[in-house]
Computed example of a mutant assay.
Amino acid sequence: MSDADLASHLAEVTGRILLEVRASGLFSAKALGKAGDQTANQFVCHALREVRGEDGLLSEEEKDNPDRLAMSRVWIVDPVDGTREYGEARADWAVHVGLAIDGQPAIGAVALPGLEGGTLLRSDQPRPVPPAPDKLRMVISRTRPAAEAVAVAERLGAELVPMGSAGAKAMAIVLGKADIYLHSGGQYEWDSMAPVAVALGHGLHCSRIDGSPLIYNQADVYLPDLLICRKEHAGQIFELIAEVTQVAD
């Protein structure tokens, strides 16, 4: 099985497992999130160690193993991105399975099991990204919207679209449900690696908000900001980020 097929298979199966855990009816919303995290993590990590045992592994739900830093190939996974949304039976949560090669987001799969019928997006099988509407739409956190994102949206005249998980936000751009994902409120490598690989595979712009590249498999896995958008919008957004940053200073 190719790396891309494996990432996609694991994301899809993990999504089905999570839906079964939720359908059991045995957990409160808070307990469901914990049960989902642990169950999904065990499946993904056991599977990767079984079929890609020579590769490194970084998961949100496991203690970090620094041995990965010496490896060229490192799987970076978030078994449930948007634990709160999953526990609340919302649609805006995701499963991330990605492979970084020499720090680059090489392969990614993002499952959105909460959407009707489920949706799986792959870095190696791009679909056409719908054109942007006249009034742009920016996805923001539904609980902690970043001040920079709100300020940039105001200057653009963009509509704000509150949403849960990072994966759901990033895939909203790919699916044409939104146009800009600007985040500056703090994230980790597992929050963005697989979604960024998928977005890049679909021809979108992906970077830090200062324009520098997103580099993975670092000793410090804190990766607090990113911008995902259509390439034709990136220049204007960077200009507006600089404006709002100067105002804040």
Rank of each mutant, 00 (worst) to 15 (best):
Q236W: 03
A4D: 15
A199G: 02
D179A: 08
M193G: 02
G114T: 11
T143P: 00
E159S: 04
H96D: 09
T14Q: 09
I209L: 10
V196L: 06
A40W: 11
D225Q: 12
A147Q: 13
M163Y: 12
Y222S: 14
L182A: 06
K169H: 09
S59E: 10
L32K: 06
D220F: 01
R22G: 09
D220A: 05
Q42C: 07
V150S: 07
V80D: 08
T83V: 09
D64N: 11
S184K: 08
I237P: 01
R52M: 02
V247P: 02
W190A: 12
E116F: 07
G36T: 08
P195Q: 02
V244Q: 09
I180T: 04
V129T: 07
D179P: 09
A170S: 09
E54G: 12
A29L: 01
D210T: 04
P126C: 04
L58D: 08
V74F: 10
M71C: 07
G98W: 03
A194T: 04
K63W: 09
L204G: 05
Y222D: 14
A242I: 00
G201M: 01
I209Y: 03
R73M: 00
V80N: 09
P79G: 07
G33R: 06
A199Y: 02
V129D: 05
A29M: 01
L115K: 07
Q236I: 00
V139Y: 01
P213I: 00
L48P: 10
A146M: 01
R90G: 00
S184M: 12
Q104R: 10
T245L: 01
E154F: 12
G185L: 06
L112Y: 07
G53W: 02
R208N: 10
P130A: 05
I140G: 04
Q246G: 05
R122G: 04
G185H: 09
V110Q: 04
H233Q: 13
V77I: 14
R90Q: 15
Y86K: 07
Q38K: 14
Q218C: 12
D179N: 12
G211P: 08
G87H: 10
